[in-house]
Write a protein that binds this DNA or RNA. Structure first.
Lengths: 211, 211
DNA sequence: CGATGAATTGAGAAGCGTCAAAGTACGTGG
DNA sequence: CCACGTACTTTGACGCTTCTCAATTCATCG
């Protein structure tokens, strides 16, 4: 199932590869290393006490995840698509904390904030009334973080994950996406290609206007 | 409106008082001090880009909030009830970071994680289907963090705040709370006193069983 | 070329939001 | 001490949104 990675050293620059749906680290596991995502999407997953699975956050190229704020990882990280990432030892990272009391903070604190923000962003999105508002806000959010290639975004994110992230059902996600397509607000030439045709309209939907 | 606080020094031990609904710090304001809550409840509020208000997290006695992960505060902190808190200079706190690379981590990192967790907990609650599940999970959560006095919790939290936290309407919160009272799952002798009569049942509701 | 998981679509029912109005608690000022 | 204003809670009625279930089509991979 999960193809074993060959742990070639000296890929600090290039990055370690992982296949779609592979688990990068698991909740509860001791924090051994910090990951910096280079390519692809990673989802943070948590299981509520009753065992229900939830996508709590998404991480994009450039993001750092798995910071050792506690002894153990606070969530499970899974590759959504095929990814490339770099690893750093947690201890190494922690020693980096000592050197950051300079006023120009571009330090580990920034990384912590960036990781935390991913979770807070979901809260902000889930707080909206109406699933269309959530979806529109979500698309706006994702698009701001996704690498763009001539107007088209690489959107290889299963609708099941979107549904879980938005706390709704896959069917609803599908129907609302179709609406957005029919109204020419977005376009999807392929299932994994996203284009925003009318960003303003999307914003208005995110604001809760039914239009 | 906001009674000016007299900034008596040497209340590091006792704590500074603030009245209900007072703003402790505002989003965007530069991080000057870190707060440690001693008594009462504080809510973290954010305004979505369209100006809609959201309660993103709650802080309980013992919690630390306002950590300078960035230059500016990432949310607005408001006293829900009358509160007592201690202040520490942000710079002082930051220098504390340097001294924490020991393995026994009971350091600033723990405080960061605790603050972040408040936001993540909301995400976990909002992820559930059915508002009753959310409310039940919320009550279970709150109760685990609230100081108890012989079986009865001090629950001075307006339903409007609960509604905002749960991303629902105040009316729905009211109706569901009444259901819980009628089913003898909770009891509220007064509006600000909460008692859990059947914790197991509450858990089942939180798990999504309609029962 | 089948097999597996994801996306799609429809129909029906229930949950929940909205609007409107009245009731309650609490602090403030006369 | 009472009257009033403000903020919060409660309740009802109505209708849309969204979930659930089920069936079909579509993609991807072996």
């Amino acid at each position: 199932m999960h193809q074993p990675l060959q742990m070639i050293s000296a890929d600090r620059a290039i990055g370690v590869p992982a296949r779609a749906r592979e688990t990068l680290f698991m909740e509860g596991e001791p924090c051994r290393s910090v990951l910096e995502l280079r390519r692809g999407l990673v989802r943070a997953v948590k299981f509520s006490s009753e065992g229900e699975r939830q996508v709590m956050a998404l991480f994009f190229p450039g993001d750092v995840l798995g910071l050792p704020l506690a002894q153990e990882h606070r969530f499970t990280a899974e590759a959504v698509s095929d990814v490339l990432y770099a690893r750093q030892s947690s201890l190494e990272w922690q020693t980096g904390l000592s050197v950051c009391n300079s006023p120009g903070v571009d330090s580990p604190l920034r990384a912590i904030w960036q990781e935390e923000k991913a979770f807070m962003d979901r809260g902000l999105i889930l707080g909206r009334g109406g699933i269309m508002a959530r979806l529109a806000a979500f698309l706006g959010y994702v698009v701001r973080r996704l690498p763009i290639q001539n107007e088209v975004y690489d959107f290889s994110l299963p609708q099941g994950d979107i549904a879980s992230y938005l706390a709704t059902s896959p069917e609803t996600v599908c129907r609302l996406m179709r609406q957005l397509r029919e109204r020419k607000i977005i376009a999807m030439a392929r299932k994994d290609k996203l284009e925003i045709l009318d960003a303003q309209w999307l914003d208005r939907l995110a604001a809760g206007e039914s239009v």
